[in-house]
Simulated assay, not measured.
Amino acid sequence: MTDPDVHTLTGPYVLDALPSDERTRFEAHLTECTFCTTEVAELRQAAVKLATQVSTPPPPALKANVMAAIEDVRQLPPQVPVAASTPKPQRFARRSVLALAAAALAVAAAGGVAIDQYQDRSAAERANQQMAAVLAQPDARTVHGTVEGGGQATVVLSTRADKSVVVLRDLPRLPKNRIWQLWMMDPANKATSIGLSTGDITQLVNGSTTGMATFGLTVEPKGGSRTPTLPAAAVVPLA
């Protein structure tokens, strides 16, 4: 990792989402960087506070504050001076907000789903903002379900925004000619496909949320199907 990059890893480090080699290098960096050490400590405190409230929706004030700050964020590495000096507080606060949003989603998604997209930092930053936007909705709620054969399906959704975030983790490996297909089903069990996946994903779904009663996950031929193949691997009521 480059010197500027290392300072952006406080969030994934707190979430235990770094690969082992990057974690080792980052922990070595912590021994000589007061800036990152302080931020890690603050983010851990925030994550602990969020974890104690996992059974309840995030406070409306927290959501509003997160979204207000994210709107002004430019995703750039912090400017780390050569000589020891006080870091710029504004940049520190904005970067911390993004990491806090990621922690909030991890807690909401069953208290421990690791967000592994940090291996692709730019993709992770976009995903964090999108997921935080769903969490910021006043009607946001989280539902969970198990997957046949192993794994977990979590859906964070907002009917008001007509958006949802689907988190699939620890899915069984499928044959090469099969693929996972994601569905939203209305009260009459009419299914709408919302995507395909070869394995674990965290996916934002725009639309296909309002009026839906159930999230479904099925195993389909590669390329997907027009209608779900039953029995489904997971059926998660959205109410």
Results as ranks from 00 to 15, higher is better:
188 A>H: 13
161 A>C: 11
176 K>E: 15
171 L>Q: 05
168 L>V: 02
183 W>N: 02
187 P>L: 01
147 V>Y: 07
153 A>E: 05
179 I>G: 01
177 N>Y: 03
150 G>Q: 10
172 P>V: 03
156 V>Q: 02
158 S>M: 06
178 R>D: 08
167 V>T: 02
164 S>E: 04
168 L>Q: 01
159 T>G: 14
161 A>M: 11
167 V>W: 11
177 N>P: 03
171 L>C: 08
146 T>A: 15
159 T>R: 09
144 H>Q: 15
178 R>A: 02
144 H>V: 13
166 V>M: 09
172 P>W: 08
144 H>A: 08
182 L>Q: 01
167 V>H: 09
178 R>Q: 10
185 M>Y: 06
175 P>F: 08
150 G>A: 11
180 W>I: 00
179 I>Y: 02
172 P>D: 09
156 V>D: 01
181 Q>K: 05
168 L>R: 04
156 V>M: 12
144 H>K: 15
180 W>E: 03
158 S>V: 07
169 R>F: 00
162 D>L: 09
174 L>G: 00
157 L>N: 03
170 D>L: 09
157 L>Y: 13
182 L>H: 07
173 R>Y: 00
180 W>D: 00
161 A>F: 12
165 V>A: 10
167 V>G: 01
186 D>P: 06
172 P>M: 08
173 R>H: 13
150 G>M: 11
160 R>T: 15
145 G>S: 10
158 S>N: 06
153 A>R: 07
173 R>I: 05
177 N>E: 14
177 N>F: 02
146 T>R: 15
171 L>Y: 02
183 W>E: 03
172 P>Y: 06
183 W>Q: 03
187 P>K: 04
175 P>Q: 08
182 L>S: 01
163 K>C: 13
178 R>N: 02
164 S>D: 07
153 A>M: 09
168 L>P: 00
178 R>G: 04
169 R>S: 15
186 D>I: 04
184 M>K: 01
170 D>W: 09
171 L>G: 05
180 W>G: 01
150 G>Y: 11
144 H>G: 00
175 P>W: 07
172 P>A: 04
169 R>K: 14
183 W>A: 03
145 G>R: 02
188 A>F: 06
158 S>W: 03
171 L>I: 06
171 L>H: 04
164 S>W: 03
160 R>S: 15
162 D>R: 01
187 P>A: 00
166 V>A: 08
181 Q>D: 01
184 M>P: 03
180 W>S: 00
163 K>W: 10
170 D>F: 01
188 A>G: 09
150 G>P: 11
151 G>W: 07
154 T>A: 07
153 A>C: 10
178 R>I: 02
162 D>Y: 06
183 W>G: 02
169 R>T: 15
163 K>P: 01
145 G>A: 11
144 H>S: 12
181 Q>I: 00
164 S>V: 04
185 M>A: 13
163 K>H: 14
171 L>E: 01
158 S>H: 09
152 Q>F: 02
185 M>F: 04
146 T>H: 15
183 W>H: 03
149 G>V: 10
163 K>G: 06
156 V>R: 07
188 A>Y: 12
176 K>S: 13
170 D>M: 04
148 E>K: 14
164 S>Q: 12
177 N>G: 10
